[in-house]
């Protein structure tokens, strides 16, 4: 279910401009996927992601969530790719065999997924989503996108609560929680119907409220919240952008393998 990944903190990374952290995450992900070498994603994990998590005090949570998201995936990856890969087996076990290629492939994919997920968890653990949106708007993202993301995040809990109260009401009226897939789909209908219709019927009122707050105005917007930034961070963001583009180009042209 929905997590509140973010916890307030005072570490260096917590104090970074959210766009800096986002740039770091994206650079890490792109670099991890750029080369076939196993050491590259492993090094990014050990020398960047983990130390950053330690510095910001989220290391244990990072490990816990990585395990939760990726442990089953990685196990399956080794089973499937280790056993099914096409070239000759490394180990012949009768009907199945372990293939070197498959194991290498599984390891590489697992390491890349760890960087992908770890980099984003690092961002989410240290950055308030509202501040991320405000900072992105300050960097030119359309305010509409910020509104869409923030508003959804805030109305989901309310909708979930409504879903639960509809569910309770129906249980109280004696609607059984049915067995079997078809029965369960049927049981969803009286729940989803009122929930969705109720939600959609509020759209008009929300539109009026937004217009009343001049959301449709074409004037140049100002910002109430000021998000700290620094020259050093600006330089580092530009360098990360250059690195990212360079990595993509070098990899696509086959310079990096």
């Amino acid at each position: 279910m929905t997590q509140d990944f973010y916890r307030p903190g005072t570490s260096l990374i917590h104090r970074w401009n959210p766009v800096t952290t986002l740039s770091l995450s994206l650079t890490l992900v792109v670099t991890a996927f750029a080369s076939q070498a196993l050491w590259l994603p492993a090094a990014l994990l050990v020398f960047v992601v983990f130390p950053a998590a330690l510095v910001s005090g989220v290391f244990r949570r990072l490990l816990a969530w990585l395990a939760r998201f990726l442990l089953p995936v990685i196990l399956l990856l080794f089973v499937i790719q280790g056993l099914y890969h096409q070239d000759g087996p490394l180990l012949d076990l009768g009907p199945v065999g372990v293939h070197l290629d498959g194991v290498l492939f599984a390891t590489r994919t697992a390491l890349r997924l760890l960087v992908l997920t770890g980099a984003f968890l690092l961002l989410l653990f240290t950055t308030h989503p509202g501040e991320l949106m405000t900072a992105l708007v300050a960097h030119g993202m359309p305010p509409k996108i910020s509104y869409l993301v923030s508003a959804t995040m805030q109305i989901v809990p309310a909708f979930r609560q409504r879903a639960h109260s509809i569910l309770d009401a129906q249980r109280a009226r004696g609607l059984r929680t049915a067995a079997g897939p078809i029965g369960r789909v049927r049981a969803l209908v009286p729940l989803v119907g009122p929930l969705v219709l109720g939600a959609l019927s509020e759209v008009d009122e929300r539109a009026v409220a937004m217009e009343a707050r001049a959301f449709g105005a074409t004037t140049r917007r100002t910002s109430y919240t000021v998000i700290a930034d620094s020259a050093a961070q600006r330089v580092s963001r530009w360098s990360m952008l250059v690195i990212t583009i360079a990595v993509i180009v070098l990899s696509a042209t086959g310079v990096i393998r």
């Binding site: 989503p129 509202g130 508003a151 805030q154 509020e202 409220a209 707050r213």
Partner: peptide
């Protein structure tokens, strides 16, 4: 419904 949702 009057709350914008845009702000935290």
């Amino acid at each position: 419904n009057q709350l914008s949702g845009a702000k935290f």
